[in-house]
């Protein structure tokens, strides 16, 4: 008889739990392998104080970072169904349940309205920790409604992308979310309102091939992976070896697909500056003083 017994077989850590900031007071930075104090990291907006590596941040984290203070959440009651009754090694409904328990959210995106530097703005943000930030019907609907809120109320719109792409478990319905969100963006464009995209690590697949690449201004966080077909897909299907830095924010900026690369610690003031420029109501009144671009290090 064994001295101790394993209660269940196999490793239980979900694959989606990798690449996330582990609990505990000390965190090892994937950028520089140094150990960073969690409190310090949080103070730095989840950016490594030693090497500027941008850890993943949640949608709530971005709302807290960007809005002037209070903001109103919308559509928190949207709930995914299982239209395909999809099962792979695991049932989709079980995956959803696990993701909800893990994140405390209903799905992989949240939408809010608030002000930035006094400018009303409609923002939606994705969460990689919820099934890889994948876009199914709920994420598509949240993003689409957030865009609609913009053109119906005359506000600029921003979306913060963090996604592996369209969600396989909802099949073609996920694919159609690309068309849905893009269709709503035509209305925003007609209304003459700006659309900002903040591309964070990673943004790939159907999300990149729809609203993430339809911004008036594309802002990327440093070092983010931004792609249609990710490096693993290209390597496996084409057998191509890829150059270093391929598909990073910096690479996309050089290629002409990203306007600005902005450190998260100065993101809020940079976006407010853009809003000041584009949404001027009274040109004599400046809303915020723009601090010189200096990174706390």
């Amino acid at each position: 008889m064994p001295w101790f017994k394993r209660k269940s077989a196999g490793i239980k850590t979900a694959s989606s739990a990798r690449n996330e900031v582990p609990d505990g007071q000390w965190v090892k930075c994937p950028g520089c392998s140094e150990t960073v104090n969690r409190r310090e990291l949080e103070k730095q907006r989840m950016v490594c104080p030693k090497c500027d590596y941008h850890f993943k941040m949640s949608s709530t984290g971005y709302f807290e970072l960007l809005f002037d203070g209070k903001y109103e959440l919308f559509d928190t009651n949207l709930q995914a169904l299982d239209p395909l009754e999809f099962t792979d090694r695991k049932a989709y409904t079980d995956r959803l349940e696990a993701a909800r328990a893990k994140t405390g959210q209903m799905d992989a995106a949240q939408a809010a309205v608030g002000e930035m530097g006094g400018h009303p703005i409609s923002i939606s943000a994705m969460d990689f920790s919820f099934i890889g930030g994948s876009m199914g019907s709920v994420v598509g609907e949240i993003v689409a409604r957030s865009i609609r809120r913009g053109y119906e109320r005359g506000m600029p719109v921003m979306v913060i992308t963090q996604s592996g792409g369209a969600r396989m478990m909802e099949g073609a319905l996920s694919l159609m979310q690309m068309a849905k969100t893009s269709a709503h963006l035509t209305k925003l464009s007609e209304a003459g309102l700006p659309f900002f995209v903040l591309l964070t690590n990673p943004t790939t697949g159907g999300v990149t091939a729809s609203f993430a690449m339809l911004g008036d201004v594309h802002i990327a966080e440093p070092g983010a992976l931004i792609a249609f077909a990710g490096p693993r897909v290209i390597r496996e299907t084409m057998g191509q070896d890829l150059p270093e830095g391929f598909q990073t924010s910096e690479f996309l900026k050089e290629g002409g697909f990203v306007d600005l690369i902005i450190d998260r610690r100065t993101l809020r003031e940079e976006v407010i500056h853009l809003l000041d420029l584009l949404m001027e109501k009274d040109s004599t009144k400046t809303k915020t003083k723009r601090k010189p671009k200096k990174q706390k290090a």
């Binding site: 035509t186 091939a209 290209i234 002409g256």
Partner: peptide
């Protein structure tokens, strides 16, 4: 869509996205 290096460099995602946007109107 072709998943190759050059396709990525020339903006595969942006090209598709732009078509979704334009075709909608």
């Amino acid at each position: 869509a072709f998943p190759g290096q050059e396709a990525e460099e020339r903006g595969q995602a942006q090209a598709i996205a732009m078509n979704l946007f334009e075709m909608a109107r």
